[in-house]
Every structure is written in structure tokens, then in C-alpha cells.
């Protein structure tokens, strides 16, 4: 199986500040690879080094089998990139910007711009300056995909997109993937990676701490549970398998849960509840309790 991206012991320091340390992983052709970690873990640093925006302190990375610093401009011909934060030339109109973007890739089918804009519900005649952040993000998506890249790199792609657009966007990425594009996507939201990716690298404090098949991650659905009991908290809850990071305050108990939900429901039903919330925890919280011992 061919690797589209190969990263080997990539290290980047900003002066003395840590960027990433000894990051190594490979992305296979045709897969959607997730790159997850809390904010500040080094996801963007890794991606920016792949794109030639940063120069590594040591280590190397290849894309399409070629060194990403030495052959940067040739490699980038085959890459579509959506940055975490989108900024464009304010005084340009959307179509003008997209055509400018297309001009770097030689012959680009301009119908493709209209096609993508329609899918993402983007008005081409508007001035960049007048766009909301969500709409700028859509411009980013269209300009990242208009040249039919072989490798799509997405850095925190869904921030700023409403749920409906997120769904459309994911469909679009899946479609590109079916057509042969390899995808590297960074995120700090576990559920979106779980939805889309086949494998993930987990990065923490600059180091990749784990490479996992998504099925392993999918089996463990992390939930943040908050229970408020009318009288006291039953002891059986703290003893349930899969409970961690439990805090207790008067009649209220909060914990992360990654076990059998039926078992938990049985235990909870033992005492009358005042309130109950179950939500998705931040990656930071998951990391604190489930990955804190992996180095």
C-alpha cells in the first residue's frame, strides 16, 4: 500500500518553545486520516510543516514520496488545504478570489467553482469583506477543492460552520475520497473524527502518543454525565465500570463514562433524579482521564 504522507521524527521548536517532538506517522493512499489532540498539542505545527510554511528543526516529511521542503511547490500542486482560520484579501470578490486561486494550478475547470459554490450555498458575487466567518470558511472549502487535489489537508475544518453545512461538507469530503483523494484532517472534536476517519493519530503536548484504528475508538464512546439526585447519590454509580474522573457535590455527581450505558441506566434508576445531562466531553477532558498515562 502506498503512503501519501510519511512523517519521520519531525521536530519543530519555535526558539525554545515546543512545537512538535519526534512526530512520526504515515497516511495511506485513499484513507481519511484523523489527527486529533487538544488545542496547542501541535496539530497545526505538523500541518504547516507539511505545507512548507514552517521549516522543521529536525526530522523530515514526504508527500507523494518527495521531500515536502525541497519539492514544496511541485507537491502543493496536488494538495488542497483548508486552514483553521480563514483570511482572504478583503477587497476582492468571492469569484475573483477563487479564480485567482485557480490560476495557480494551470488549467482548472471553472464550472467546478460554480458546482462547489452551489453545494456549499456560497454567493460568488459578494465582497470577501462583507462575508460572515462561516461564509469565509465556505470560500476556504471551495478554494481548497476546486483543483481536484489528490491530497486534502483540513485543519479544524468545521469550526464556524453550522451543523447543516458541516453535514454537507462531510458529504463533500467523502465524495472526494470516493473519487480517490486522500484526506488528512485535524480536529479537537472526537465525534467528527469518529464520523469521518478510518485511522487516527493522537497528539498530546507535541508528541504522537497513539495511532489507532477508528473502530477501536468508536467502541469507546465517551460521554460526560451529570446527575442530580433528589436525595443522596447511590454508591453503585461510582463503582460502575467505565466511570472516571468522578466529582461529587451535595446531591450532584459528574463523571466521564465509557462503558455499557444499560448498566449505568440500571444503577441510576435506583434513586430518584432531579436532573440528568449527557453530553460529549471536550477532548481535553477525555485526555485527562483516559490518555493521561500514555507517554
Amino acid at each position: 500500500m502506498n503512503n501519501v504522507i510519511e512523517i519521520s521524527k519531525l521536530t519543530k521548536y519555535y526558539g525554545k518553545a515546543r512545537g512538535i517532538i519526534d512526530v512520526s506517522f504515515a497516511v495511506r493512499q485513499g484513507e481519511i486520516f484523523g489527527f486529533i489532540g487538544p488545542n496547542g498539542a501541535g496539530k497545526s505545527t505538523t500541518i504547516r510543516t507539511l505545507l512548507g510554511l514552517l521549516f522543521p528543526t529536525s526530522g523530515s516529511a514526504t508527500i507523494f514520496g518527495r521531500d515536502c521542503i525541497r519539492y514544496g511547490s511541485e507537491i502543493r500542486r496536488g494538495i488542497g488545504y483548508l486552514p483553521a482560520e480563514v483570511y482572504y484579501y478583503d477587497n476582492m470578490r468571492v469569484l475573483e478570489l477563487l479564480k485567482y486561486s485557480a490560476s495557480f494550478y494551470g488549467r482548472v475547470d471553472l464550472n467546478r467553482i460554480h458546482e462547489l459554490a452551489e453545494i456549499m450555498d456560497l454567493e460568488l458575487g459578494r465582497k470577501i469583506d462583507d462575508l460572515s466567518y462561516g461564509n469565509k470558511k465556505k470560500v476556504g472549502i471551495v478554494q481548497g477543492l476546486l483543483h481536484r487535489p489528490k491530497l486534502i489537508i483540513l485543519d479544524e475544518p468545521t469550526s464556524g460552520l453550522d451543523p447543516l453545512m458541516q453535514k454537507k461538507f462531510f458529504e463533500l469530503i467523502r465524495e472526494e475520497n470516493r473519487n480517490g483523494a486522500t484526506v488528512l484532517m485535524s480536529s479537537h472534536i472526537l465525534s467528527e473524527v469518529q464520523k469521518l476517519c478510518s485511522r487516527v493519530a493522537i497528539i498530546k503536548e507535541g508528541r504522537v502518543i497513539k495511532l489507532e484504528e477508528i473502530n477501536a475508538l468508536r467502541q469507546t464512546a465517551y460521554r460526560k454525565v451529570r446527575l442530580e439526585f433528589i436525595s443522596g447519590v447511590p454508591d453503585s454509580i461510582a463503582e460502575a465500570p467505565g466511570v472516571s474522573g468522578l466529582t461529587r457535590e451535595n446531591g450532584e455527581v459528574t463523571f466521564l463514562f465509557a462503558g455499557d450505558i444499560n448498566d449505568l441506566v440500571r444503577r441510576v434508576s435506583a434513586a430518584p433524579l432531579k436532573n440528568l445531562t449527557i453530553e460529549e466531553p471536550d477532548l481535553e477532558e477525555i485526555f485527562m482521564h483516559y490518555y493521561s498515562d500514555i507517554e
Binding site: 510554511l53 511547490s73 486552514p83 482560520e85 480563514v86 483570511y87 482572504y88
Partner: peptide, 17 residues
């Protein structure tokens, strides 16, 4: 200044150009 680095410098064009 205008944070358009991620647009221009990720295009298939070298810094020399």
C-alpha cells in the same frame, strides 16, 4: 499582516517567485 499566508504560500509556487 492580513493573515493571507495560508492562502498564497500554500499554493504551488515557490517563495522565490
Amino acid at each position: 499582516r492580513r493573515k493571507t499566508t495560508d492562502f498564497l504560500l500554500t499554493k504551488p509556487i515557490g517563495r522565490a517567485r
